[in-house]
Computed example of a mutant assay.
Amino acid sequence: MRGIDRISELVSGGFTLARRLWIIGLALLGAITVGGLLAWQRARHYERLFHLVRLDPLGLAAFGNDPPKPARIVFFGDSRAAAWPAPAGFAIVNRGVPGHTSAQARLRYQLHVSPLKPELVIVQVGVNDLTALAVFADDSDAIIQTTIANLGEIVNQARADGSRVMLTTIFPLGPNGFERLDPATAQIQTAIERVNQAIQAMAAPDVVIFDSAAILADESGYVAERYRDDILHINLAGYRALNEALSKALAELIQD
Rank of each mutant, 00 (worst) to 15 (best):
T190W: 10
A62M: 12
L26A: 15
Y109C: 01
Q189R: 06
V223N: 00
Q197S: 13
P85M: 14
D56L: 13
R228H: 08
L58A: 01
N235Y: 01
F90P: 02
A184M: 02
W40D: 12
I209H: 12
P68M: 08
Q104G: 02
D218E: 06
P57S: 03
A203V: 12
I209L: 11
V195D: 01
I122A: 05
R226N: 14
F171G: 04
V121E: 05
E193H: 09
L58E: 02
S247I: 12
V123K: 08
V207A: 06
N156V: 09
K248T: 15
L37F: 15
I231F: 03
G177E: 09
R72M: 14
N196S: 02
H112P: 03
G59H: 13
R240L: 08
R164N: 06
V11C: 07
I154H: 09
V207E: 02
P68D: 09
A103N: 07
A160W: 08
S8T: 11
A71E: 13
L151N: 05
A204W: 01
G35I: 00
S140V: 00
A86P: 07
N196W: 05
G59M: 11
D229K: 05
H233E: 08
L151E: 02
A61H: 14
K69Q: 15
I234H: 07
A61I: 10
A83R: 15
L242Q: 05
F90K: 04
I4Q: 12
R106G: 04
G96E: 03
W40K: 11
L242V: 08
F178N: 03
I199R: 09
D5M: 09
G162W: 04
A160T: 07
H100I: 08
T16D: 06
T168C: 13
Q145V: 14
V165E: 00
G30S: 15
P87S: 11
V74L: 09
A186P: 00
R228D: 05
G14Y: 00
V121A: 11
T101N: 05
I23G: 01
A88Q: 12
V165N: 02
E252F: 14
A81S: 13
D78R: 10
R48K: 14
I188C: 01
V11E: 09
P172S: 05
R106F: 07
I122F: 12
A224T: 03
I7L: 14
S12M: 06
G3K: 10
L253G: 06
A18V: 08
A224H: 08
N243T: 12
A142D: 04
W22S: 12
F136V: 02
L55V: 09
A134S: 11
L58G: 02
T169G: 04
L133K: 01
L55W: 07
R54P: 04
T33Q: 10
G238Y: 13
L116H: 10
I234W: 12
R80Q: 03
P183M: 02
E219I: 15
A137F: 00
R164D: 07
D206K: 10
T33Y: 15
I215W: 03
A61K: 14
I215A: 04
F50R: 14
R159E: 11
E119T: 13
R48M: 13
H45G: 04
S12E: 10
A158G: 06
I143Y: 05
N65W: 09
G89M: 10
A245C: 01
S247F: 04
V208G: 03
V113P: 00
S114E: 14
I23H: 11
N196A: 03
V155N: 04
I170L: 01
T190S: 07
E119L: 12
A61P: 00
